[in-house]
């Protein structure tokens, strides 16, 4: 009797030790990533949020309450940047999505070889550095000797000022982004289109549905989660657009292409207003968060 219970506790202890050991191994494997994330992501993020309430100087920061936010809200450039970023997002995210859906819908019935050719062609611009694309487009959009005005002159259009005029600069940036930026969306949409059961289309065809009906009443509803995903990702990245602005316009002319991310950069590294830059970044974070939540709300599966 005594002997068996002894054995039982020994077995139990053995398993407990094994389990302990396994936990320790688990933490060991998490360690390298945790160190990097804690030190260089989580800590700076928290510090960034708190810096919003301080006036920074090398000697030491002083608490200024909401003053950075008040100064920011009183600044016209902040509101211009917010408006520019929003217009840019409205132009490129829904616009890009419509283009990507149409192109995917045309590509989908083609043979796998043709499909992968077009996928590669549309995706290729996305592998280039933002800086490189921006430089090339700056050259193409040059008002005097740029390629685009040259091509348009054949059909008696232009010349347009593109980036050099406040009325056209932001639209030019949006056009460039829509033209080259659909590759990833198209690949994702095509992959999800492939998962829609063929039987749905067949029964709709039997009921006399035309291609538009099939697209409108089967493809689009079935792609709802994909569309939501692309919208959320698109809005998040478009609200952070920076590289192209920095290279192509520097926020000008007359602040017409100053976006929030560019404003944060320039208040931090041109004016060295670290507190102010952090306050603006905090607002950007809140905006992105709210927009993502709104999108999730409207695209809920169980929406009645």
């Amino acid at each position: 009797m005594n002997h068996t219970s002894n054995l039982q506790t020994r077995i139990k202890r053995h398993y407990r030790n094994r389990k302990m050991q396994s936990h320790l191994w688990g933490y060991f494997f998490l360690l390298p990533q945790m160190i990097v994330i804690l030190l260089f992501a989580l800590y700076p993020i928290l510090q960034g949020l708190s810096l919003s309430f301080f006036e920074y100087s090398v000697a030491g920061s002083t608490w200024v309450g909401a003053q950075n936010f008040i100064a920011m809200l009183k600044d016209d450039v902040f509101w211009i940047a917010l408006r520019n970023t929003t217009i840019y997002t409205i132009l490129i995210v829904p616009g890009g999505l419509v283009v990507a859906l149409i192109l995917s819908w045309i590509i989908f019935p083609l043979s796998p070889k043709t499909q992968s050719f077009f996928k590669a062609a549309y995706y290729l611009p996305s592998v280039l550095a933002g800086v490189v694309l921006a430089l090339v487009w700056k050259w193409i959009l040059d008002p005097d000797i740029g390629l685009l005005n040259y091509l348009l002159s054949f059909i008696h259009l232009g010349p347009y000022p593109w980036l050099s005029h406040p009325d056209t600069a932001l639209v030019s940036l949006a056009m460039m982004s829509i033209l080259g930026g659909q590759g990833a969306s198209i690949i994702i949409i095509l992959a999800n289109m492939g998962a829609i059961p063929e039987s749905l289309y067949e029964s709709a065809r039997i009921d006399g549905g035309n291609p538009w009906h099939l697209f409108r009443f089967i493809t689009i509803p079935m792609l709802k989660p994909t569309i939501l995903y692309l919208l959320v990702i698109g809005v998040i990245s478009s609200y952070q657009v920076f590289d192209t602005i920095y290279i192509m316009t520097g926020g000008g002319p007359y602040y017409s292409t100053t976006t929030i991310a560019y404003l944060i950069y320039s208040s931090a590294f041109d004016e060295f207003e670290f507190g102010r830059a952090s306050a603006t970044a905090t607002v950007l974070f809140i905006i992105i968060f709210i927009l993502s939540m709104i999108q999730f709300y409207f695209f809920r599966e169980d929406k009645k």
Binding site: A41, P44, A261, L284
Partner: peptide, 20 residues
């Protein structure tokens, strides 16, 4: 906790990272 870091825009991080 780690996944939440994905939601936060880089712009919040640039100033503190620079100081650090």
């Amino acid at each position: 906790l780690v996944l939440a870091c994905l939601m936060i825009p880089d712009q919040i991080r640039i100033v503190p990272l620079f100081i650090m």
